[in-house]
Design a protein around this nucleic acid. Sequence first.
DNA 1: ATCGGAATAA
DNA 2: TTATTCCGAT
Length: 248
Amino acid sequence: MGPLISPYWSQTVLFPDWAYKPAWSPGSRQVQLWHFLLELLGRGEGGVITWSGEWGEFVIQDPERLAKLWGERKGKPHMNYDKLSRALRYYYNKRILHKTKGKRFTYKFNFSKLILVNYPNLPSCQQVFQSGNSLPFSHFSSEGSLYSPPVDRAQPSVSHPLLLPYCFPKSLPFSQASPYQGQFPFLSALHSSATNLSELIRLLPFNSSLHLGQTLTSWPTKGSAEWCLNRATAPSQVDEGEGQEKKM
DNA sequence: ATCGGAATAA
DNA sequence: TTATTCCGAT
């Protein structure tokens, strides 16, 4: 049949492996809905879901299409927006997401909650950063209570609760007074050692040659081995062969 | 459209 | 525990 999307060879790039808990690992599923949303948003294709307005706010432009994609990813052929949105509503209590009232199909991420809520086993960024203002990321290396990937590939298994930059809407206007500080525990704590995005990038546990002047819409597909990014296939069409272009 | 209870799955 | 599936209420 058409191009089905299999979870483990999927075309997605946006998260390092540790973000995807394998289904066969005890007590974990594969992809969480907010992962998926952040992926699509980070891809910036804009046909289905896009950032809008406030920081973290996004609008679902084609709800049923989004549901279709989500259903493919999870192997739920009968997924629809009604059901997807119920899952979204469960995020309200967890403070991961909330509804932007009055705006149709519009929700808003609460980034400051996302990480800690979903990766409670990871060491708190606050703690780590505050315990020593220098070289924060060295603390994250290997050993510790971190999630270890199932594949026994020779992976350094570096993990920390930072979302990758392209998960965020647009670039971070650090240069100025950062109005976003309060929303990011790790950023506010990091402030003493990194005052702008370029310094933040420099602190990341891999050498990345990001173009800081640009918006962070693209990420080097040749990521570092340490982060073992999921492989990206071209942003080309992975979606259906159902031949649905436009829909009412 | 949006909300949230209830039952159920994995 | 995170959805998935239904569904009545607003």
